[in-house]
Amino acid sequence: MQEHEKGVLYLVVIGAVIGLGKLLVSSEKITGRLALGRAILGGATSTVAGVVLAQFPTIPLPALIGVGSALGILGAQFLEAWLKTRVNQLEQKP
Protein backbone atom coordinates (compact mmCIF):
# COMPACT_ATOMS: atom_id res chain seq x y z
CA MET A 1 0.00 0.00 0.00
CA GLN A 2 1.37 3.39 -0.99
CA GLU A 3 1.82 6.23 1.47
CA HIS A 4 -1.11 8.32 0.22
CA GLU A 5 -3.40 5.26 0.39
CA LYS A 6 -2.35 4.70 4.00
CA GLY A 7 -3.09 8.34 4.75
CA VAL A 8 -6.62 8.10 3.36
CA LEU A 9 -7.23 4.86 5.26
CA TYR A 10 -6.03 6.49 8.49
CA LEU A 11 -8.36 9.43 7.86
CA VAL A 12 -11.37 7.17 7.37
CA VAL A 13 -10.65 5.18 10.52
CA ILE A 14 -9.95 8.25 12.64
CA GLY A 15 -13.09 9.96 11.37
CA ALA A 16 -15.18 6.88 12.19
CA VAL A 17 -13.71 6.71 15.70
CA ILE A 18 -14.42 10.41 16.21
CA GLY A 19 -18.02 9.89 15.12
CA LEU A 20 -18.44 7.00 17.56
CA GLY A 21 -16.74 8.96 20.34
CA LYS A 22 -19.12 11.86 19.84
CA LEU A 23 -22.02 9.44 20.08
CA LEU A 24 -20.72 7.99 23.33
CA VAL A 25 -20.53 11.37 25.03
CA SER A 26 -23.95 12.49 23.82
CA SER A 27 -27.18 11.97 25.73
CA GLU A 28 -28.82 10.24 22.76
CA LYS A 29 -29.94 6.63 23.00
CA ILE A 30 -27.29 4.55 21.25
CA THR A 31 -28.66 2.36 18.47
CA GLY A 32 -26.83 0.37 15.83
CA ARG A 33 -28.23 2.59 13.12
CA LEU A 34 -27.08 5.77 14.86
CA ALA A 35 -23.62 4.35 15.57
CA LEU A 36 -23.16 3.24 11.97
CA GLY A 37 -24.43 6.56 10.66
CA ARG A 38 -22.08 8.57 12.86
CA ALA A 39 -19.12 6.35 11.91
CA ILE A 40 -19.86 6.75 8.20
CA LEU A 41 -20.41 10.50 8.49
CA GLY A 42 -17.23 11.01 10.52
CA GLY A 43 -15.17 8.86 8.15
CA ALA A 44 -16.50 10.63 5.08
CA THR A 45 -15.98 14.16 6.37
CA SER A 46 -12.47 13.47 7.63
CA THR A 47 -11.38 12.22 4.21
CA VAL A 48 -11.91 15.76 2.92
CA ALA A 49 -8.48 16.37 4.44
CA GLY A 50 -7.18 14.39 1.47
CA VAL A 51 -7.60 17.64 -0.46
CA VAL A 52 -4.71 18.95 1.62
CA LEU A 53 -2.56 16.29 -0.02
CA ALA A 54 -3.24 17.84 -3.41
CA GLN A 55 -1.96 21.22 -2.21
CA PHE A 56 0.85 19.92 0.01
CA PRO A 57 1.93 16.47 -1.23
CA THR A 58 4.82 16.29 1.23
CA ILE A 59 2.74 17.05 4.33
CA PRO A 60 3.73 14.74 7.21
CA LEU A 61 1.18 12.08 8.14
CA PRO A 62 0.60 13.43 11.70
CA ALA A 63 -0.28 16.85 10.28
CA LEU A 64 -2.66 15.26 7.77
CA ILE A 65 -4.32 13.28 10.54
CA GLY A 66 -4.72 16.47 12.61
CA VAL A 67 -6.42 18.25 9.72
CA GLY A 68 -8.59 15.19 9.13
CA SER A 69 -9.59 15.04 12.78
CA ALA A 70 -10.59 18.69 12.81
CA LEU A 71 -12.61 18.29 9.63
CA GLY A 72 -14.15 15.09 10.96
CA ILE A 73 -15.44 16.90 14.02
CA LEU A 74 -16.49 20.20 12.48
CA GLY A 75 -17.70 18.80 9.18
CA ALA A 76 -19.85 16.11 10.76
CA GLN A 77 -21.50 18.60 13.13
CA PHE A 78 -22.22 20.98 10.26
CA LEU A 79 -23.61 18.26 7.99
CA GLU A 80 -25.75 16.77 10.74
CA ALA A 81 -27.27 20.15 11.63
CA TRP A 82 -27.86 20.95 7.95
CA LEU A 83 -29.48 17.57 7.29
CA LYS A 84 -31.78 17.88 10.32
CA THR A 85 -32.86 21.35 9.18
CA ARG A 86 -33.44 20.11 5.64
CA VAL A 87 -35.48 17.10 6.78
CA ASN A 88 -37.60 19.32 9.04
CA GLN A 89 -38.24 21.69 6.11
CA LEU A 90 -39.30 18.81 3.88
CA GLU A 91 -41.61 17.40 6.55
CA GLN A 92 -43.34 20.77 6.99
CA LYS A 93 -44.13 21.21 3.29
CA PRO A 94 -47.70 20.23 2.38
Rank of each mutant, 00 (worst) to 15 (best):
S69C: 13
A81V: 06
L83T: 13
T47D: 11
G15T: 00
F56Q: 12
P94A: 07
A70S: 07
H4K: 14
G37M: 13
G66E: 03
A54I: 09
L36D: 04
L23F: 00
G19F: 07
I73N: 01
K6C: 06
A16T: 02
G75W: 05
S69N: 03
S69Q: 01
T58V: 06
E80V: 03
K22I: 00
K22R: 14
A81C: 04
S26I: 00
I65N: 07
L61T: 13
L11W: 01
A63I: 12
V52P: 02
S46L: 03
L20Y: 07
R38T: 08
G7C: 08
E80A: 12
I30D: 02
G68R: 04
Q55D: 12
S26W: 00
L34F: 03
Q77T: 05
P62I: 05
V25F: 07
G15Q: 04
E3K: 10
A81R: 14
I14G: 02
T58G: 08
E5G: 03
I73S: 01
L53T: 02
I40Q: 07
A63H: 11
S46H: 01
Q77Y: 09
R33S: 14
Q55N: 14
G15N: 02
E3Y: 11
G72V: 09
S27R: 14
R38F: 11
V48N: 04
L90R: 08
A39T: 12
G37R: 14
A70G: 09
P57G: 09
A81T: 10
Q89N: 01
N88P: 00
I30S: 03
I40V: 15
A63P: 01
K6T: 15
L9R: 13
G72R: 06
H4W: 14
A76K: 07
S69L: 11
G37P: 09
Q92V: 02
A76R: 03
A39L: 13
E28P: 00
P62D: 11
S46N: 05
L11M: 06
G21L: 12
V25N: 04
G72P: 12
L64W: 08
E28Q: 10
E28K: 04
A63F: 09
E91D: 13
H4N: 14
I30K: 03
Q77K: 05
E28Y: 03
A76Y: 00
V51P: 01
I14W: 10
L71C: 03
A39K: 11
G50R: 12
T47A: 11
V67T: 04
I18Y: 09
N88W: 03
I14L: 15
V48A: 13
I14R: 01
V51Y: 11
G68E: 07
L71M: 14
G72H: 05
F56T: 12
I65Y: 05
L41C: 05
G21E: 07
A35R: 04
V25I: 15
